[in-house]
Amino acid sequence: MCLSDLYDFTPEQRIAIARLEHLRAMRSYVQGVRNAIRADLSMPANAGNASLCAEPAAAGAAFSMETIA
């Protein structure tokens, strides 16, 4: 339901309200995309395929790079 459905507005006001609601919806969508990208960036790239036989020095280097970022 749109805000313009609740009250009696002029046609020009209805157009302005529709634009505003569209901008708010797009802003919400963009914020969701940004949050998803931030979540992906905060997860280490090799978290899913980490080997148990990984070299400890390499694991320590990866950890220190994550803490710096």
Rank of each mutant, 00 (worst) to 15 (best):
A39T: 06
I37C: 03
A25Y: 04
A59I: 10
D5Y: 09
C2T: 12
H22P: 01
A18T: 07
L41I: 04
L23F: 14
A59C: 09
G32I: 00
C53V: 13
G32L: 00
Y7D: 03
R27L: 12
A62W: 07
F63T: 08
R14V: 06
A47N: 02
A39C: 04
Q31A: 11
A47H: 10
A59L: 12
A18P: 01
A45G: 01
A61G: 05
C2K: 15
G48Y: 05
I17C: 02
S4M: 01
L3Y: 13
R38C: 01
T67G: 02
E55Y: 14
A54W: 08
I37Y: 07
D40N: 15
L41R: 15
L20V: 07
A62T: 09
A58F: 13
R14M: 05
S64W: 08
R24G: 06
A69L: 03
I17P: 02
M65F: 11
Y29M: 07
N46H: 06
G60F: 14
P56T: 00
F9I: 01
A69G: 03
R19Q: 14
R14F: 04
R24D: 05
Q31F: 10
R34D: 03
A47M: 03
L23A: 15
R34C: 02
P44Q: 00
A61C: 06
L52K: 11
T67K: 09
N49V: 02
C2R: 15
G48F: 06
L23K: 15
N46M: 01
L23V: 12
I15H: 12
C53E: 11
V33F: 01
M43L: 08
A39K: 14
A54N: 13
I68M: 05
E66K: 12
L20I: 04
A50N: 05
